[in-house]
């Protein structure tokens, strides 16, 4: 795989990681800190697990769409 592609994937992953860290910390989290049930599940739990799953999905997509082998 060529260097440019590797760098592209690398930058995407770093951006994703930063976005994840920001979304899962104060003050973003405080937006979901209200005591209410949605679909029978507390809103905070729903956001945390939902975003978590979404984040994993994005990571998988970025990585699996990049060519593998040598860097």
């Amino acid at each position: 795989m060529n260097h440019a592609n590797y760098n592209r994937t690398k930058h995407r992953l770093i951006a994703l990681s930063i976005a994840g860290f920001l979304a899962l910390n104060y003050p973003m989290l405080s937006l979901f800190d209200w005591l209410e049930l949605k679909l029978g599940i507390p809103v905070l739990f729903l956001f945390l697990f939902g975003f978590w799953g979404f984040f994993i999905l994005l990571t998988a997509m970025v990585i699996e769409n990049s060519p593998g082998e040598e860097r």
Binding site: T9, K10, L13, I14, S17, G20, W52, F55, T59, I63
Partner: peptide, 9 residues
Amino acid sequence: TIIAAIWWP
């Protein structure tokens, strides 16, 4: 989970 995203590099 967050840091695993940059494991590859």
